[in-house]
Design a protein around this nucleic acid. Structure first.
Lengths: 265, 265
DNA sequence: CGAAGTCTTGACAAGACTCAAACTGGGTGG
DNA sequence: CCACCCAGTTTGAGTCTTGTCAAGACTTCG
């Protein structure tokens, strides 16, 4: 179910509006075009879990800022295989394509009920041109995406099945805002199914299941019924070996800070 | 062997200088900060095949524009496994990290003798702020990188060994500037070894060898002694199934055009 | 309570990796 | 000019990881 909602309805959590602890606005002062950005929103949308936001092959035109819920970006092959490229968490931007690419190369789907803000690309290009702070933040987000995607590439190319699963779960634990370093026996909800993990790691859901069982038997973590418990953060991290900078990019603080911007909430 | 070379020595092929058909300058008019960009180069460098350009963990500070030769970016795990993230061809930019990341998350190595231009990040940030055309081009390159990296991610996650090898070779054939659609029995040099293909595709060199043999036996392509012959472009493309937009991003014309910029050489 | 979507497990098959060995071609130094 | 060396290539045999197919159990939600 899609609905256009008046801006006021989002006052409390829209990254493009007044709360703005997140997303494109995170580090913007009024001198950086924040007010204009807010006013140029095409609108806000509420979507149910499972709804597509855009499909592969749709014309490219809008950028999206996720306000609440989870989204995944995925790329599908003709024969039905699909790769999850990225999980999007609140405050993150998605929907970019390089100029000249007319059509989305991937799809976006809501994994939970979500709310998001929509903004036309031309407006973003315009604001980038006129406000350096805005441009910096936009570039930072692209560079962050790139960094994370390259990390996933290394994971898929070089790591074993169990390492890939561990890597994904550690990343998402930190990105969802769990305190870092992670506490022992930390337990929290996470909207992941085994097929989703499979599509993200390039494994079959059956094999994901085996890997999760091993992680559980070795008392490293337990993922069941949408809740993740991390028994042993140290061994989990040892399996993954993330760099300090990578972990920092995973934290919500990084998105807040953007460039280590002066202004903060 | 590293050497700082006076700018004039590169007059004919430096993307930051007068020839500028490529790289950051490709689409820049004088109103877009081209002159300033040229003057803010830290210098130019010649490197021998095999030399490292930067290492994982080096402090981050410069961006690089490849003028001639081939470079690969790769990320290494502690135990020696390594993933090639991207092959860099002349006119492409590399070395970015998101602000706040102090240290390179990956390494860059020359695969052939190369020449490149070096420019401090702060200069790029500054020029981005002051010249919209420059900023657009920079963003375009980031978005293109992202697009290509996501495509690789899908390849590693979903495709079989032989498809991955086919995908990589098709991409590089187009990116090196072969006319598209590819001609039958097109033959050209390409500085790839089987271990390199393995590191890029997440396969062992031995398995890469087997896949290359199959591609040869099926008379699709032949890669030996640094020369790639494409027997059957149609079947090669059928194996890979690239979208039109993706192929367009592979062409050299895309780098020239940047955003479909007005100005051209 | 029933239905749908997950999750779980087992048995088997296939794809990819490991180890080992021989071969090739180009470059180096005597 | 030759012998050597080295990195890359090729091949085979055996192993291990991961995928496939099939069936049953568990949640969640209406």
């Amino acid at each position: 179910m899609t609905a256009n909602i008046p801006i006021t309805a989002y006052k409390m959590n829209c990254a493009f509006c007044s709360a703005r602890p997140l997303g494109l606005c995170g580090a913007l002062g009024d001198g950086d075009g924040f007010r204009e950005l807010r006013d140029s929103r095409r609108g806000a949308r509420l979507l149910d879990a499972g709804s597509p936001i855009y499909r592969q092959g749709d014309p490219h035109g809008d950028l999206y800022n996720l306000v609440s819920g989870w989204v995944c970006l995925h790329q599908d092959l003709e024969d039905g295989r699909r790769q999850i490229l990225r999980f999007i968490l609140p405050g993150e931007l998605f929907g970019q394509e390089p100029a000249g690419v007319s059509v989305m190369s991937h799809a976006a789907q809501a994994l939970t009920n979500i709310s998001l803000c929509v903004i036309p690309v031309e407006r973003v290009t315009d604001l980038r041109a006129r406000y350096a702070g805005f441009g910096d933040r936009f570039v930072w987000m692209l560079e962050r995406d790139n960094h994370l995607t390259m990390d996933h590439l290394t994971s898929l190319g070089q790591r074993s099945a169990i390492e890939r699963v561990a890597h994904l779960l550690l990343e998402l634990a930190v990105r969802t805002g769990r305190r870092y370093p992670l506490a022992r026996d930390d337990r929290f909800k996470i909207p992941l199914t085994q097929p989703l993990i499979g599509d993200a790691t390039g494994l079959t859901p059956i094999h994901v299941n085996r890997m999760l069982r091993r992680l559980r038997e070795e008392r490293i973590l337990d993922l069941r019924n949408g809740a993740l418990t991390i028994f042993d953060p140290d061994r989990l991290e040892a399996m993954v070996g993330p760099s300090d900078d990578l972990v920092r990019l995973w934290t919500r603080q990084a998105i807040l800070d953007g460039l280590g911007a002066s202004e903060q909430l």
